[in-house]
Design a protein around this nucleic acid. Structure first.
Lengths: 203, 203
DNA sequence: AACAACAATTGAACAGCGTTTAGTTGCCTT
DNA sequence: AAGGCAACTAAACGCTGTTCAATTGTTGTT
């Protein structure tokens, strides 16, 4: 059989990405293979390579979806916060919660580029900037005497820190963190950093 | 040919770990394969599986060596610091420098457990605690009114943060961090966090 | 010295992987 | 009705981790 024309290329793409998300969620990053994915959408590997450049391309496109979902999730969880501190703590908690409930997907976001080595895809950067933007927006009211570029940097520093804590948790290395849980650690980071940040940067 | 008896099991183990480190350094994490490693030490795969449980076991043992080397490296780079602040900044810089000059090895340290999923090996934890201990030791003089357990937690929070920044750099995602370099970001994190930390934890 | 027992080592095999491509099939246009 | 073309498959290539029967060199015993 050939020339079935059941689905358009775009339909196949979307079906494949859906199936890929499911496989990753159920079996982890390593569980995703071209043959398994093709079987899941009732096609063969060849068709997959007609729609995607390679498996990395698929992973990358799933990751871009994840970044979008993450942005929406964070935004929704921070919108009710009254003070900027509240917003930042809510963002940190939401980030941890997202990583925890979708750990395989979240992990994939940070595993794949490691081998690729070179540049990240274009859309990637834009979407990640959007996520950073949420932190930046909450940090701006607390700027005090700090310049705009200092606020931008601070947002990235703070979020890299929250991310690091989140990694400890997701990669099952919380035993390295004593008895504390990730939320308490993030709390500590945000509060101390903010206190230091507001006190001015006389370095 | 069989029964060559050229090397003891321990010798083979050590040769294999040396060769594995070399391959990882030259070709990255993904470049390490059982056949390639066996060839590098002039044995076949079968022998490798006589000495190691599987490839994960090898990776894990290389990682333990890396943790030891990292500890020595950090210790050496912080020993001349006069003030605790100086020591913490030196540790952060040394951590980043280590990750940068041995990026493949450093990466492997944080990539492998992701799939494994379950518990980390026993030696792993002890060695990692030793690394944390360095940060803790430098942080203790700044404890002020904070309790010992708060200092311990702070050490882990701070280092998770430095680690997160380091990840941005090594995984070539510094473009996500604006124009700043990793050292400057780590600097900012350490200084603001310390300022906040000394001001007391009324949180 | 001959021989048996044993341990060390090999190499082939298995099932899976990513990726490419020749070949087949069915639809659309003329 | 015929031809052209796009969609799709199936098989192949060289790789992977892992296992294990078979072979070989060494050692201890007679």
């Amino acid at each position: 059989m050939a020339r079935r024309n059941d689905h358009s290329r775009e339909e196949i793409r979307s079906m494949a990405l859906d199936a890929a998300e499911k496989i990753v969620a159920e079996e982890g990053f390593k569980g995703l293979s071209a043959r398994k994915l093709a079987a899941a959408i009732n096609y063969t590997v060849g068709t997959l390579y007609l729609v995607f450049a390679n498996l990395d391309d698929i992973v990358q496109q799933v990751n871009e979806r994840t970044l979008d979902a993450l942005y929406d999730w964070l935004r929704a969880h921070a919108k009710d916060a009254v003070t900027p501190e509240e917003a930042l703590l809510a963002l940190a908690n939401a980030y941890i919660a997202y990583a925890e409930t979708r750990s395989a997907r979240w992990n994939m976001l940070f595993e794949y580029v490691a081998d690729n080595g070179s540049t990240l895809p274009p859309g990637y950067l834009v979407k990640a900037e959007k996520v950073f933007g949420l932190v930046e927006a909450s940090l701006t009211p607390l700027a005090g005497q700090n310049s705009i570029s200092e606020v931008q940097q601070a947002a990235r520093v703070l979020w890299a820190g929250v991310h690091g804590i989140c990694l400890l948790k997701i990669r099952q290395r919380m035993d390295l963190a004593g008895e504390q849980n990730a939320e308490a650690m993030a709390h500590m980071l945000v509060e101390n950093f903010l206190r230091g940040f507001r006190h001015g940067t006389q370095a």
